[in-house]
């Protein structure tokens, strides 16, 4: 028990300041301002895997670690879409996950935003045209912001999230 605390005392804080570039496509300045006003201080994110290869998930998982630490910006991952303000969707939406994604979107309380992370979520990426895939997230639910990359690095994800919120770095 004390070994953990001694290790913590020795290691100290390792969080890095946010860096990295991301091309984020946002839909309209008015919407961005409203999103910033509402969710600028606190955004609860529910990550939805709509058939991804899990590459994006591994990068997203890095966000909760000590180096990227998205919690310092008021962002927080939650378990239930009822608790969420933002759906972070990855993966080309496969036919089997289309209905589930729709249910998840409907289960989320309004107002909410949807962010599509990764090339697959934007427009099905390398799986575009496959018989098993419906096509990017925008085919199922309305998307407010996208973060391209295959997979986007945690720094890019963080920059993209902050940019989507209209927050200064």
């Amino acid at each position: 028990m004390f070994r953990q605390l001694r290790l913590a005392a020795r290691t100290g804080i390792v969080t890095e300041p946010p860096a990295g570039q991301a091309e984020v496509a946002r839909l309209g300045e008015a919407l961005a301002r409203e999103v910033c006003a509402r969710f600028g201080g606190s955004l609860h994110i529910r990550q939805v895997d709509a058939g991804s290869c899990n590459g994006c998930e591994l990068e997203i998982a890095g966000l909760t670690g000590p180096h990227y630490d998205l919690e310092r910006f008021g962002l927080h991952f939650v378990a239930s879409p009822r608790h969420a303000d933002c759906l972070l969707v990855t993966g080309p939406v496969t036919r089997n996950m289309a209905e589930a994604l729709r249910h998840t979107y409907d289960a989320t309380a309004d107002p909410k935003i949807v962010i599509a992370a990764g090339d697959c979520a934007v427009d099905a990426g390398i799986f575009r045209g496959s018989y098993a895939v419906v096509g990017g997230v925008a085919a199922i639910v309305p998307v407010d912001a996208t973060i391209p990359g295959c997979p986007p690095s945690p720094a890019a994800l963080l920059a993209g999230l902050l940019d989507a919120l209209g927050r200064r770095r």
Partner: peptide
């Protein structure tokens, strides 16, 4: 708890922001 595991962590008044945001949402 965040500082003890090497993260900067949220600010101590973060729950106030969370509560304010939640009150403005329509419940399901």
């Amino acid at each position: 708890k965040a500082r003890l595991v090497g993260r900067r962590g949220p600010v101590p008044w973060q729950p106030y922001r969370d509560l304010r945001k939640l009150f403005a949402k329509t419940p399901v």
